[in-house]
Design a protein around this nucleic acid. Structure first.
Length: 433
DNA sequence: TCTGGGGTCCTAGGACCC
DNA sequence: TCTGGGGTCCTAGGACCC
């Protein structure tokens, strides 16, 4: 919530239009204006649609086989997805955006929030900043973006929706500078289900309460919404009123869960095939684990039959295997996953999907941390000082500089009023050779 | 006769996002 | 014939404790 005296925040949401489709078009300009979709793994369903295809009423996630007739009729081109390419293009976009402000949150592969009130004075107004961003991304990466600007993330999202939907905005919509009457007009015209965080289920319940538009939701009492729907919807109400409740998350927090799973192109029945898949997923997960410097304390293995085949016997089962020691080791994790699979596999089913989930993630202990753990000096100031002294004598006194953790008072209390000369940021310590 | 009550922790499941 | 692959947060309810 805004504190009195705090600078009013302003958020910009930059979102690439039809991201996967636009990426493909950058490298195949002849596809410009051609109706096209990008398909999911196994070419199952549409995960990105060009504007032309959206105009035909094709919904996100429509199975390719269901739209084949339509595709034939309108010449819709289908492309298999290339996530490596999209990931690379995404980084390039973020690189451009960082030139405008370091206060940036990469929200998804094709969206970033920028906090812009601090850089605004260099520009005529928010809209012109938005236009410059849009042009710069286009010039540098070839990708088209829309920019939405508002006093909260939710309003920036709404503004982005308007920028995409209504041509006169020319790709940039600034809600914060809009006259109240105009904003309320847009809010009245926009269905409540378009609000970020209001999904199908909630939209339906809201409609039963005669809350149909964004404007309706902004008007109701947030407290009443909290009672009926919980804190999430309450927060959305405040955000729509311009009270920012969701702050920028500049550093992505470490994942709490890592999933690797995939559907099979064809039904799988044998243990051998399942085992191969599960082993692959465990190994992939282990890589992800190591890349964020975590270890996992438990993993879940699951197998599923095809839920769309109503008349075939169904078997959805999972098992969670606890590890005696948290690990990021491929062999350990693969072995545990296969052990789990043996427990849940049953013959006679046509499996459609299998995967591995790592739970109970924790930071991987660094060498320095285990040193302190072993010496049992953690939290004991005298022993801690001694240990730090010994590190200083090994690496030179300049190595350990300041007490970065906690306040100065905090440190002095724990260390008997000595000055904060030591770091508790273990990552900064060098590793002995 | 009459069987507490409040707290924490964990898990499953729902709802939502892209 | 053919239907994605990730994630997050919140809540309710059960287990358990004193």
């Amino acid at each position: 919530m805004n504190q009195a005296g705090q600078t009013n925040q302003l958020f910009a949401l930059v979102d690439v239009n039809n991201f996967y489709v636009s990426c493909e078009r950058v490298f195949a300009p002849k596809l410009e204006d051609v109706p096209m979709v990008v398909l999911s793994n196994n070419d199952g369903c549409a995960v990105a649609r060009s504007a032309e295809v959206k105009a035909l009423g094709v919904k996100m996630g429509t199975p390719w086989f269901q739209m084949k007739d339509l595709a034939k009729k309108h010449g819709i081109q289908a492309y298999s997805s290339n996530y490596t390419l999209y990931g690379d293009m995404s980084s390039r976009v973020v690189e451009v955006l960082r030139k405008f402000t370091p206060n940036l949150e990469v929200y998804s592969i094709d969206e970033s929030f920028l906090q812009i009130e601090t850089v605004l004075r260099q520009y005529v107004d928010p809209t012109s900043l938005g236009q410059i961003i849009k042009q710069e991304v286009k010039d540098t990466t070839g990708l088209p973006v829309c920019v939405g600007i508002g006093a909260s993330k939710t309003l920036a999202k709404l503004a982005n929706h308007l920028a995409k939907k209504y041509k006169p905005f020319a790709g940039v919509c600034d809600i914060s500078s809009m006259a109240k009457e105009e904003l309320y007009q847009w809010m009245t015209e926009t269905p409540v289900g378009e609000v970020w965080g209001i999904g199908g289920k909630t939209a339906k319940k809201l409609k039963d309460l005669k809350i149909h538009s964004v404007f309706d939701l902004m008007q109701v009492s947030p407290q009443a919404m909290r009672q009926q729907f919980g804190v999430v919807i309450e927060r959305i109400c405040y955000e729509l009123r311009g009270v920012s409740c969701l702050q920028l998350e500049e550093v992505a927090p470490a994942k709490q869960q890592i999933i690797s799973s995939r559907s099979f192109g064809k039904p799988v029945t044998s243990m051998e095939e399942l085992a191969e898949s599960v082993a692959t997923h465990a190994a992939r997960g282990a890589e992800k684990l190591r890349s964020q410097k975590s270890v996992t304390g438990a993993l879940t293995v699951f197998v599923q039959t095809n839920p769309h085949k109503q008349f075939e016997p169904q078997h959805h089962q999972s098992i969670t295997v606890a590890l005696s020691d948290p690990s990021d080791n491929t062999l350990t994790l693969t072995t545990a996953a296969l052990k789990g699979l043996q427990q849940i596999y049953k013959t006679g089913f046509k499996y459609k999907k299998a995967g591995v989930i790592f739970n109970l993630l924790a930071d991987k202990p660094t060498m320095q941390q285990s040193l302190f753990d072993d010496m049992e000096v953690k939290g004991k100031s005298a022993g801690l000082m001694k240990a730090l002294d010994s590190i200083n004598s090994r690496f030179g006194n300049a190595v350990i500089r300041t007490a970065a953790a906690g306040t100065k008072q905090d440190w002095q209390m724990r260390s008997g009023n000595r000055s904060p000369n030591y770091t508790t940021q273990w990552d900064e310590l060098p590793i002995a050779r």
